[in-house]
Design a protein around this nucleic acid. Structure first.
Lengths: 201, 201
DNA sequence: CGACCTTCTGAATGCACGTTCAGAATTTAG
DNA sequence: CTAAATTCTGAACGTGCATTCAGAAGGTCG
């Protein structure tokens, strides 16, 4: 008997199922991923998933939390370590692309979920907030640079949309062309947005 | 008897069904749009759709063709009318956003289809070529500007990804914030990419 | 050893989907 | 007006899905 909330076996199964879900979603796509496919990869019955997660929605939520945490832990410290907004923007782009290189499949799964999950009525999905937060994080860096005079005057919202749009376009490109040079891409994007944001002397 | 391929009634029904499909997809999202939902909006039985289009896939293809033609007809002439690459890039961004303003729902439906349709094995979907062509069109404009010396040296592929990424991010933003100022957006994006591409004198 | 709890299986259930089709309704042709 | 072709309905499949559940299997502890 254990006083903790979850037993050892439970924790292991959850991790395994989440792993298989990431694998399935990243290769099959969100729409074609069913509990049966995930269970198949894990070599278990579909009932086990419902047993451990209560349902599909909760499993998906667990995957999102898992990957989002992974991303945050890797990216946030590096970005916050920068002394000025220009370097922060550079770090933002570099860490984003670095994450794609290191955690490609989890990232693809996350993108699949965020873009494909919709509310019951067709409205913004349950993970729209996630996207919004990401946008606001970028806006904050941009506002910082404008305050210090490093950046010219522009609508931070629009620039943030452009930056996130460029970053989010990469995973899709990665599916078509798996041999994409992510380091080169990071360098080009950094130059691009440095030129686009820097204060016109 | 008609010598043409399609009767009057057939043409009318096809148009109506395509219209309802666009309406359904743009408001419900691709995943939640079924033939039943489309038929419901048209006030007909689901069999009619199969009768006129042969199946769901063909209907979707018809929608894509319809909207893509609409977009091409509106955008290509305006872009080709420009005398230099800088103006062409500006025209490209402006016409893209203008199209979103005029044909918002069809455009949303098109984006839904392109991003959500996947091959049976999970590979690139049947409309990946569409996306690739769009990317190459941008690359062509960029290469033009580099040849004339208007643009600095950069990887046209990467810049194209960033430009299309920024443009493609707008519809998603439009769902969350329907009152987005598209004209202002166009102006900001033009400035942004003009600064990013222009030759460093 | 035996009672108990956790974990799992495999089948059953109900639902939504795309497609098909016999026959009815409607339009067109002679 | 009659006959044929076109167009539509409503129901019937067959499939895949998420969920549920009775009972088996496995481990734990008294």
């Amino acid at each position: 008997m254990h006083s903790e909330g979850r037993s050892f076996i439970e924790e292991a199964r959850r991790a395994q199922i989440i792993e298989c879900a990431i694998d399935a979603i990243s290769t099959l796509g969100y729409a074609k991923t069913s509990l049966a496919r995930i269970a198949e990869r894990a070599g278990i019955s579909t009932g086990v998933i419902s047993y451990h997660f209560g349902g599909k929605d909760e499993l998906i939520k667990a995957v999102v939390t898992e990957v989002a945490t992974l991303a945050t832990d890797m990216m946030v410290p590096r970005i916050l370590a920068q002394a000025n907004a220009t370097d922060a923007l550079r770090a933002y782009l570099e860490t984003n692309l670095a994450f794609m290189r290191v955690h490609r499949r989890p990232l693809l799964a996350l993108v699949e979920i965020i873009t494909h999950a919709r509310g019951t009525g067709g409205g913004p999905g349950p993970y729209a907030a996630q996207h919004r937060t990401a946008l606001e994080d970028v806006e904050r860096v941009l506002a910082w640079g404008q305050k210090t005079g490093e950046f010219r005057r522009f609508d931070p919202r629009v620039m943030a949309i452009a930056i996130r749009g460029a970053v989010d376009a990469v995973p899709a490109e990665l599916i078509v062309d798996p041999d994409l040079d992510l380091d080169g891409l990071a360098r080009e994007l950094t130059t691009l947005f440095t030129l686009a944001t820097r204060s016109t002397t």
